[in-house]
Design a protein around this nucleic acid. Structure first.
Length: 541
RNA sequence: GCGCCCGUAGCUCAAUGGAUAGAGUGUCUGGCUUCGGACCAGAAGGUUGGGGGUUCGACUCCCUCCGGGCGCACCA
């Protein structure tokens, strides 16, 4: 089906070609208008043209309207307003007719912009050294939702969780477990600062069976149990992701795989071939400053161990050179934002510039009764994501996190979230869906009747909101701003509730046919909106 | 000190450089004999942190100051 804004854009493009043949490839913005006095849709294209053709924008708008041609089936009128807006008033019958289109189009909202290219979305990727935090949750829901949206945009989506299963952190975790175990079994030991402080370490220690007779030094003890500890932690992460967050990944990719496949060596060779490596103070450095980074970075440490950054380079080499991924979207916690510079340097060096988008997910400040709770994995003061989801419910948690732009700092007040759970906007949206389901059930085999009344404003507004859905999906896909979805869902629910209040669908013992269609279309779009956010659309509440 | 993010209604947050800055929540006032009142209608609430600049037009872009968060490792 053809959307109204597409249609209007097409008309304007023709008008521009006629009136201003010299102008090529100008972007034509079309926006829906909420205030009735300005019509249904508006365009600022005359204002944009003013700079190009050096002419009064109102004059341009008048010229363009004169060239609009015959579109009697759709347009009521087009007029100039303000500094040079072109306001379109669309015929009510035309708007109402689009409901059929929505119902007939099983792929309504989807498009083929992605051209079946491969996009890899990496999100969460919380380290297996502790429970997932609220910040992880934010990235989880954003990433998962954006992946859904990209799929609707015709991309082949691959969801990946990158698991840092090697490195010093694993040793620290194992040491923490051992020391806790000692404490639990009356073996004198200290518990140093660098060890993980959280309760979960004690739980892990209780699960571990450490053979006391073979106690030697910390290092050998550590090496003996760290594999088991790590796998326990990974299983725990996977349990929460699958069972609590209900998120499915295409792969849980382990950092250790990179070494096993010798990808780090291959990536190094690429950098070497571009003369981007040098040795200083016994370490191997990558000249990232050549790509605008603050300083060069070490890839191989003096002790011969690989630095963490090398893994990330190898990972990109794997994804782009071997797996031939077309694009990557990486969700990173804000505490890693300093990392973007060197990641981009790596992408440039490997020849994959601009193929990586890094989305920074800002910290979540946890509040309780209006007071901030300082959270630290290391200090062991935090509320886990699992606790929050259990407390407020997955739908509430997802909607709440998605409502906020990922780049903004946000407060999450546990007390408030619990208190307001009945009034949470997600219920408002779900209620609209439940209401529809109930209506459709009631309709049954009641006789359908056709109305000759002109459509009510609430009906028109509802249809216009439905017609916005494909645009919302496009906007989210290109901007990566997932908060547009919950806002759209709320608006759609509002428009439906208004319609419901003002227009009867089931009247006495008969059903108004065109309104029934509208209700069905609304249900369809509501379901799609909720589904893309990963939120349920209940029949009853 | 340097870099990134943020500052919008009492609170939590929206707003491709466009018309009178909007929602939810909280406060106040109304609305069900009939499709689900977890709803609807209305009121009040703002110098968009301050000050400059660019523009026909700035919450949005640039400069500066103030306030808050986070980074600045041969840790991961």
């Amino acid at each position: 089906m053809i959307l109204p804004d597409e249609q209007l854009r097409k008309l304007l493009r023709i008008a521009i070609t006629k009136a201003y043949p010299a102008v090529k490839d100008i972007e034509i913005p079309i926006e829906p208008v909420t205030e009735a006095q300005f019509g249904d849709y508006t365009s600022t294209v005359a204002l944009k043209l003013a700079k190009i053709v050096n002419q009064n924008p109102r004059e341009i708008a008048t010229n363009l309207i004169a060239q609009l041609g015959l579109v009697k089936s759709m347009l009521e009128k087009a007029d100039v307003a303000g500094p040079g807006f072109i306001n379109f008033t669309v015929k009510p019958q035309w708007i109402m007719k689009q409901v059929q289109g929505i119902l007939a189009d099983t792929k309504f909202g989807s498009n083929l912009d992605g051209k079946n290219r491969k996009v890899l979305v990496e999100y969460i990727s919380a380290n297996p050294t502790g429970p997932m935090t609220l910040g992880n949750g934010r990235g989880a829901f954003s990433g998962d939702t954006l992946a859904n949206v990209m799929a609707m945009n015709g991309w082949k989506v691959w969801r990946e969780y990158y698991l840092n299963d090697i490195g010093n952190q694993v040793n620290v975790l194992a040491e923490s477990v051992i020391r806790r175990y000692f404490q639990q079994n009356g073996i004198p030991t200290e518990y140093p600062e660098h060890c993980y402080q959280g309760e979960y370490v004690s739980d892990l220690a209780k699960q571990m069976k450490i053979d006391k007779l073979k106690l030697r030094d910390m290092t050998s003890l550590r090496d003996r149990i760290k594999g088991r500890v790590l796998e326990t932690m990974i299983k725990e992460l996977q349990r929460v992701v699958a069972k609590k967050l209900k998120i499915t990944f295409d792969a849980w990719f382990r950092e250790s795989t990179l070494g096993a496949k010798k990808l780090d060596i291959k990536a190094l060779a690429v950098l070497e071939s571009h003369d981007l490596l040098y040795v200083k103070d016994g370490a191997t450095w990558f000249r990232t400053t050549a790509f605008g980074d603050d300083k060069d970075r070490v890839l191989i440490k003096t002790d011969g161990e690989k630095a963490y950054f090398l893994s990330d380079i190898a990972l990109r080499y794997y994804r782009f050179a071997i797996r031939k991924i077309d694009h990557e979207i990486l969700f990173l916690g804000a505490d890693h934002h300093g990392y973007i510079g060197r990641l981009n340097a790596a992408m440039n060096a490997l020849g994959f510039a601009k193929k990586l988008d890094v989305e920074i997910v800002q910290m979540v400040r946890l509040m309780k009764d209006g007071v901030e709770v300082k959270m630290s994995k290391r200090a062991g003061t935090y509320v886990t994501l699992e606790e929050v989801v259990d407390e407020v419910g997955l739908d509430v948690a997802r909607f709440f996190f998605l409502m906020h732009r990922a780049s903004t700092h946000m407060d999450f007040d546990m007390t408030l979230a619990k208190e307001k759970s009945e009034k949470n906007p997600v219920f408002y949206v779900q209620y609209a869906h439940a209401r529809i389901s109930s209506m459709l059930q009631r309709v049954g085999k009641l006789p359908r009747v056709v109305s000759k009344e002109p459509p009510h404003t609430s009906e028109l507004n509802l249809v216009k909101t439905l017609l916005q859905f494909p645009n919302v999906i496009c906007e989210v896909a290109s901007s990566h701003e997932t908060q547009k979805l919950p806002f759209y869902a709320t608006e759609l629910a509002t428009k439906f509730h208004e319609f419901y209040t003002n227009c009867r669908v089931i009247d006495e013992q008969k059903v108004w046919a065109h309104r029934l269609e509208l209700v069905k279309a609304t249900q369809l779009v509501l379901q799609k909106t909720l589904k893309v956010m990963g939120i349920s659309a209940p029949e009853k509440m």
